[in-house]
Amino acid sequence: MPNETMRTSTAGLSALRAREGAILHYYNDIANNCTFGVGALAHHGPCTEEEMRRPVSTADVNAQLAVSVRSAEAAVRRQVSARELTQDQFDALVSYTFNTGPTGAHPALAAANAGLDEQVVAHMTRNVNVHPRDVHGRRLRAVRSAGLVNRRREEAAPFRIEARAE
């Protein structure tokens, strides 16, 4: 398998942390889901008052991030096994999988596996909506996120034809 020993690079991990941010407490993310640290979903729906007061240590954030990144790396290696990725492509797919989960990333990962870079870009750049939740945790209508538009542009860049031509 061509990508079986790949790991996220230092630059890739730094980019992921910058995209996500590191917050040392529980908060409600853009979709009104209870989140902490580097984009770690605590649960669907808003945080309780108790959770909002709960501090999160740097060690907690780093431990959670390490587990989540390793899980995303494993999903990328497992689903992109027929084609060798560049380090930038691997890092981008790990960031995308970290953010969307392996199920959400599956269409882009399948396209990457098949060497269909234009489809990778198309799948990534379409995945820019969030589904907010109301105070009871019920899903509301999807909303386009400008932050995700920018993030997907960055994540898709290593798969654009002009990026490979340089």
Rank of each mutant, 00 (worst) to 15 (best):
P46S: 07
A110H: 09
R70V: 06
E73K: 04
A82D: 15
T103H: 08
T86H: 00
D60C: 00
V67K: 10
N62L: 08
T103P: 01
L93G: 13
A108S: 13
V76F: 02
H43M: 04
L109A: 00
H43F: 12
A75G: 10
Q87T: 15
A66G: 04
R77N: 07
T48V: 05
H43G: 07
Y96C: 09
H44G: 11
L65N: 04
P107K: 05
A82E: 07
G104C: 03
G104K: 00
A75M: 03
P107H: 01
N62R: 06
E51R: 12
L65Q: 10
Q89F: 07
E73D: 02
R83H: 13
E50N: 11
Q87D: 08
L85S: 01
S57G: 04
P102Q: 08
T97G: 02
A74R: 13
V61I: 15
S95D: 04
P102Y: 02
R70C: 01
V76I: 02
D60K: 04
H106I: 07
R78I: 04
A92W: 05
H43L: 07
V61K: 05
F98P: 09
R83D: 09
L93I: 13
T58G: 06
F90T: 05
G101Q: 07
V94P: 11
R70W: 02
V76S: 03
P102G: 11
T58W: 10
T48K: 01
S57P: 10
T58H: 12
E50I: 10
Y96D: 08
D60W: 00
R78E: 14
H44P: 09
R53H: 12
A66T: 15
P107Y: 03
V56M: 02
R77I: 15
N99L: 01
Y96Q: 02
A63E: 14
E51S: 09
Y96N: 04
T100A: 12
P102L: 05
Q87R: 14
S68L: 14
D60E: 15
A63C: 03
R53D: 11
E84T: 13
R83V: 12
E84R: 15
R53S: 13
Q87Y: 01
A66C: 00
A111S: 10
R54H: 13
A82L: 12
P55A: 11
N99E: 00
V94T: 10
Q79N: 13
P107G: 00
A82H: 14
